[in-house]
Design a protein around this nucleic acid. Structure first.
Lengths: 141, 141
DNA sequence: CTTGATGCAAAGTGTTTGCAACTTA
DNA sequence: TAAGTTGCAAACACTTTGCATCAAG
């Protein structure tokens, strides 16, 4: 999946006449971590590989990774944004534990279908959606 | 519905040994506007009624209105939070037009039921949820 | 060698907080 | 009159931007 993301990103950059720098390579590599991470966390990851990398570059590259479809941005309502790998993964939604903060992913086709038919009723064309179920996870109930 | 919100809020304050000030009265009154508004917008509304009211007080009161259940907070992902009346309204979710910014509300019982059964599968206890469908509205397609 | 990228620090956002003066119950 | 509330400005957390310098193509 590193390969896949790499080629997606490279193609994206080429198409927009942007350059593949060593910093962008580092950030892409570190963005392949599993799970959900913040911009700050990603900066930390990257600094281990290249201590001179800057916050500004991480933010700027994050925008490109998002635009190219390599990463997906998630907003869990606590103010900051989290990112997760999007490449070659099925769409999913999230449970968010309001006690321990754990994030659990799930897929539910029937829900998606109902969303589509609801959209049809309103003559609305869905581009993307976000469904978050907040509450207590198994270990926090 | 002003009456209903007023009594909910008054009761809430009393229970917590908090005081009903003229500023809180103003903010409650202005928070009854229809639709979705930001903290800043609410401050503007309030300033028309009482020009000396401060940003800090609006933010502090907004937290109380949320806690008391008079208002509901919505996060539409553009960084800031919007508020809407919650008193005596049925739960609903939102379409958000990514072109014109229009917000359309909808109710869909079957979706809620599927969420509950999904939660059961994961031994998760849902407290609240947020479903936002982003895309193009009828006039922006 | 041209155009875009980087690091830095400064500037923005939207929201929160410390504090002395002031109101409510 | 005790306890909570206010306005103000400063502090915050996160993100973005201007600019001179640097590197990719």
């Amino acid at each position: 999946m590193m390969r896949e993301a790499e080629s997606t990103f490279t193609t994206f950059l080429k198409k927009k006449d942007l350059k593949l720098t060593s910093q962008r390579r580092t950030i892409l590599r570190q963005a392949m971590h599993d799970g959900h991470f913040s911009a700050e966390k990603l900066l930390d990851f990257c600094k281990k590989e290249d201590p001179t990398i800057s916050k500004a570059t991480v933010y700027r590259t994050l925008a490109l990774l998002k635009e190219s479809g390599v990463l997906e941005e998630q907003d869990f309502g606590d103010g900051r944004k989290l990112y997760e790998r999007a490449q070659g993964r099925k769409h999913h939604d999230h449970f968010v534990c309001i006690k321990c903060g754990k994030i659990i992913e799930f897929e539910n086709e029937p829900i998606e279908r109902l969303q589509d038919s609801e959209a049809k009723k309103h003559h609305f064309k869905i581009v993307y959606h976000s469904l978050k179920l907040f509450g207590f996870c198994k270990s926090c109930v």
